Amino acid sequence: MKIFNKITDMKAEIKKLKSEGKSVGFVPTMGFLHEGHMSLVRESVSNNDVTVTSIFVNPTQFGPTEDLAAYPRDFERDCAMLDKNGADIIFHPEPSEIYGEGFCTKVELSGITEVLCGISRPVHFAGVATVVTKLFNIVNPDRAYFGSKDYQQLQVIRRMVKDLNMDVEVVGMPIIREADGLAMSSRNVYLGAPERRSALALSGSFKVVEDLLKQGVTDSKTIKEKIAEFILSHPHTRIDYIETVHPESLVSVDSAEADFVVALAVYVGKARLIDNRYFEVNHA
């Protein structure tokens, strides 16, 4: 497994691989990897000649009061996991390598980035879109793999790739959960034992939605109120948002008359956790 820190070295390696006719799969990450990331790596390994994983804690997607400095990091452990799961290349640049002196360009979407996480994290998606554009330009992947736990991010990347005619296939992968249902996240490390139990309220709330739909409840306001009641019945929880949205545009829907996504952001202790579930509506 090769490790590159410099853009010029990474691009030279990709140019060589492409000249040999090799297909390139890409898994962009911020490190502190877990089984969710590994599911993306294994999918890439099975569908491409070469798999590149980036490990880069991107400063431009963190707001001034967010956890950039505290974000968990363990590069040696990450390397061992990636090697075990078949990754071929790690791209691990410093922030100064990605954002050189005088850097003043950003990629910014409208609409789809101004809802859900975009409300409480207004700089986040411009940071994501900019760094992913740069990484795509550096790695030049045929396919790029993203987990659907970050559902809004996945839709933002898909929209950006479509709008800017980028020649990369964006592959969305299912959420990987712990045995008890908690969505895997690097930020789960922030949870103490009591908070860890309360964090199950996020995935547990989807059963609340299932039961309401079975009862014939389709009013989104009612669905969101019942989710809020359930989550707040658990200690250490504070709701950022609960939304029912269109699966692609992420526009809020008033009624569950067609397929929709329930998207959640909840503070459990100091950890801000997100989760979502796609609900198929069958009126047959």
Rank of each mutant, 00 (worst) to 15 (best):
K2L: 15
K6G: 09
K6R: 14
K6W: 12
E13M: 13
K15H: 13
G21N: 15
G21R: 12
V24W: 11
G25P: 02
P28S: 15
P28W: 12
T29I: 01
T29V: 04
M30H: 14
G31L: 12
L33M: 07
E35Q: 00
G36R: 04
H37M: 03
L40E: 02
V41D: 04
E43V: 11
V45Y: 08
N47E: 14
T51C: 09
V52G: 00
V52K: 00
T53G: 01
T53C: 07
F56W: 12
F56K: 11
V57I: 06
N58V: 11
T60A: 12
F62D: 08
G63A: 12
E66M: 09
E66Y: 13
D67M: 15
P72A: 13
A80Y: 06
A80L: 07
L82N: 03
K84D: 07
I90S: 00
F91P: 03
F91M: 04
H92G: 10
P93C: 10
S96A: 13
G100Y: 09
F103E: 08
F103N: 07
T105L: 15
S110L: 08
S110R: 10
S110F: 05
E114K: 02
C117M: 10
R121L: 11
A126M: 04
V128A: 06
T130L: 09
V132E: 00
L135F: 09
F136G: 00
N137S: 12
I138H: 03
I138A: 05
V139D: 03
Y145A: 08
Y145T: 03
S148E: 14
K149D: 01
K149G: 04
K149N: 04
K149R: 07
Y151N: 11
Y151T: 09
Q153G: 03
Q153W: 02
Q155K: 07
I157W: 09
R159T: 10
R159N: 09
L164T: 01
N165H: 13
N165E: 12
N165R: 13
M166T: 00
D167Q: 01
V170F: 03
V170T: 00
V171T: 08
M173S: 14
P174E: 04
I176E: 11
E178Q: 14
A179Y: 05
G181E: 07
M184V: 01
S185Q: 02
S185M: 02
G192D: 15
P194N: 14
P194Q: 14
S198I: 07
A199Y: 05
L200M: 10
G204L: 04
D211L: 08
D211Y: 06
K214H: 11
G216N: 13
V217L: 06
S220H: 00
T222M: 15
K224A: 07
E225M: 08
K226V: 03
E229P: 02
E229S: 11
F230E: 11
I231V: 08
H234R: 10
R238S: 12
I239F: 04
I242H: 06
I242K: 06
E243Q: 09
T244K: 01
S249K: 12
L250R: 14
L250Y: 13
V251A: 12
S252W: 08
A258S: 13
F260C: 05
V262A: 02
L264F: 06
L264C: 05
V266E: 05
V268P: 02
V268G: 00
G269L: 01
R272L: 10
Y278P: 02
E280R: 15
V281M: 13
N282L: 14
